[in-house]
Design a protein around this nucleic acid. Structure first.
Lengths: 240, 240
DNA sequence: CAGTGGTCTAGACCACGTG
DNA sequence: ACGTGGTCTAGACCACTGG
């Protein structure tokens, strides 16, 4: 049992939930009652409830009470980026081409562009000991008057730079499928009929909700495994 | 700007981080300084810092200070269960077989069993409009003296029941790969050489760290897409 | 209206890190 | 010894819910 008061309270309530003494949608005793039960102050008790809420055990409704939450065990987490998540690791990134096109098709849709808008198209190849293991096509809107893009376009890790700079401001989305390598199979020394992982990745401005980049990553199937898990309780951030 | 004090402070500090006024690993002003800056009490300020910490913007070290965190943009979330995550949706689950074996091989390792321990082996087929789209083999230790297992074993959604009951107490891990359908291809009307999603799923007791079940799920590649995203800030739980 | 949770304060003492 | 963050209290007022 923890010698920190609010953690002791957390442990006790958690035990009641796990043991079934409290069931989903049951109301906890009111905060004033719990204060007496555990002999702690309001703020201390509320810190405990806050932790339990963060860890998904309870939720609260103002004016009504605190309730046991139905556990959500279907939520998984994993880490991914196209450079470090492959196995064996990427040791070389080849910039195949950088071109400026007029937006069209899926890319125009994804980036929410107008007819005459231009896009930068970047093709990259990821290699491990000289073997190509992944191929990426990234699109992002081209602004002729913003020199930043042209300055940085020479760096092969352009997209990485972009993301790092904006990291706090962007949200990313992935869609992972199995598809035929198709027209890009030659980049990976495959035949068009070979199956590969296809990861569609979009980055989006968190505030404006505007799409920033859209890319397709093809990964040879032997070089990628997704390892995911339900979040650990310590991964749920600690409370001050 | 929020009329709730602690949220206003959060917004302001967040703005400073996003704008670059504060960079990763920079130390924030001390709490007593921030109290004066924002003209709030210690507890209110700390609630703000707590929220920022939960959302991944800062971390704190006792005795030293609060620091800006390097953003972690490689963390993704997605939801998965073998019944509801396929497309089109599973509308029938067929229990193919339930057998009791002596543990051996990978299963014995996964479940950390001894030589003579017995395991329940359950084979299930998931169908959509009569077409098999996924196949699962689940293993869990068999305890002859625990009648619960035998009572419930007749239900085709055995594993689901098991998980729901223990939901608060278990952790789950997935490994997702592309593999050949191999020896189980006939269950899915495929040839052994066809590629499928293979999801290795383990459930583990959160406290004791003991493995509870291990299963292999094979999914026809056309019927599964992983849709993942970096966590929304509102998904990061609220603070009391 | 009474009871619930939500926000906020002022002040206390403790634990840790650095000099 | 001093400054930092970590825990805790007692009490206040507000906002929401329901009878």
């Amino acid at each position: 049992m923890s010698n920190v008061l609010y953690l002791a309270v957390v442990d006790d309530i958690k035990k009641k939930i796990i043991s079934g003494e409290l069931s989903p949608n049951d109301m906890l005793n009111s905060e004033s009652e719990l204060m007496k039960e555990y002999n702690v102050s309001r703020m201390t008790l509320r810190k405990s409830l806050s932790l339990l809420s963060n860890q998904g055990y309870i939720y609260s409704i103002q004016g009504k009470g605190n309730f046991v939450r139905k556990p959500n065990t279907d939520l998984y987490q994993f880490r991914f980026n196209e450079y470090d998540s492959l196995f064996p690791e990427v040791d070389e990134i080849k910039l195949l081409s950088v071109t400026i096109d007029t937006a069209s098709g899926q890319v125009k849709t994804d980036l929410q562009l107008n007819h005459d808008d231009q896009v930068v198209r970047i093709e990259k190849l990821m290699l491990s000991t000289n073997e190509p293991i992944a191929f990426e096509i990234l699109h992002t809107q081209y602004f002729a008057n913003k020199p930043v893009v042209e300055d940085q376009i020479n760096f092969s890790n352009y997209s990485r730079t972009l993301e790092t700079k904006l990291a706090f401001a962007i949200k990313k989305e992935l869609e992972i499928r199995i598809v035929k390598a198709g027209q890009y199979s030659n980049r990976l020394d495959l035949t068009p009929d070979d199956d590969v992982f296809q990861i569609s990745k979009k980055t989006i401005n968190k505030d404006t909700r505007k799409p920033l980049t859209t890319s397709i990553i093809l990964i040879k199937k032997e070089f990628f495994v997704i390892t995911a898990g339900t979040p650990e309780e310590d991964e749920v951030k600690k409370i001050f």
